[in-house]
Design a protein around this nucleic acid. Structure first.
Lengths: 164, 164
DNA sequence: TTGGAATGTCAACAAGGCTGACGTAATTTC
DNA sequence: GAAATTACGTCAGCCTTGTTGACATTCCAA
């Protein structure tokens, strides 16, 4: 696919862009489908997945950090966090330097669920990469980064540098 | 970016996949941000956008077709369609061949809103494509297609053939 | 003519967003 | 040391958008 219109971007028609938009819509649905199935069995939703994902990525992160990354209100996050803490998946520890802050960690059970979820998601991502071929992977990530809000992209790029 | 790991897919680490997963999450948020802003001013949500988009793409589509594409229940879609019809953005016409079916069309007002929404979304997509460069675009679309559920991908490919 | 398909509608419920207000520590600032 | 600010939690209420279940209507097709 995508030969005739990749040579010259000026020839990207609205129709071709519309197809890309739909591809994004359908792909995102595929992207979330596997975790969604696992989560619904546990009476959790995507909001729980997101919290678990980012706590796993940055253990000890504060509630405020998480709010900024997820872009939701504290009331909304708190509802999710409360159930995760009650269910013993997340551990909330009072900060040592600043005792107003709560630092969030996954418990062993939380880490286990995170593994299940990300294994499923990674498997699909890996399969898509394999089928699309190596050359496509770099382009995929390049476009995605440029589709983010600029502020987020900077944050994302910073993280990228960090764990080289 | 993405040189060292595009040569050999076997070297795609979990960490690199995790970054791709986050890129997908953040990019999707950027992807929907502009339409979301327009919609919230009109007291509509993403569900309205999706309905408008696909009615525009396939004028005269039936409710059942739309259900299949959107993957929601008819009750859920119906609520959205009702408001769009009441507000004069969508026209629902009884089928001629099969009078049980309702064929959906955008009114002039509906088409105008569709333009506003897709203009915003296309602008961002076009900008991302331009910044990422022509070579990236093909890879982007290739990976996205392989991330969809297989059944959907077939449908998507069929559409692709159709409007060449 | 009758069964089943397509569509619509009513009711009830849940997840997960939101705003606004308030309380309580703890820290920072003056 | 008092006052302001920050971090977090919580209560209450609202909205969108998804879900099930039940039921009516219309109409095609066997």
């Amino acid at each position: 696919m995508a030969q005739g219109h990749s040579d010259n971007l000026l020839f990207l028609t609205d129709e071709q862009l519309r197809r890309a938009i739909e591809a994004m819509f359908f792909a995102y649905r595929g992207f979330t489908a596997d975790p969604d199935r696992i989560l619904s069995d546990l009476n959790y939703g995507r909001a729980h997945h997101r919290a678990i994902h980012f706590i796993n990525r940055t253990p000890g992160t504060t509630v405020n950090n998480l709010l900024a990354i997820l872009g939701v209100t504290k009331q909304s996050l708190n509802r999710v966090l409360r159930t995760l803490i009650e269910d013993g998946l997340v551990d909330s520890r009072v900060g040592t330097r600043d005792r107003r802050e709560r630092h969030l960690f996954l418990t062993d059970a939380g880490a286990a669920l995170e593994q299940r979820l990300s294994d499923a998601q990674r498997a699909r991502m890996r399969a898509a990469f394999r089928e699309a071929g190596p050359a496509s992977v770099a382009g995929f990530r390049e476009v995605l980064e440029h589709m983010m809000d600029p502020e987020l992209r900077r944050h994302f790029a910073a993280v990228k540098e960090g764990d080289r």
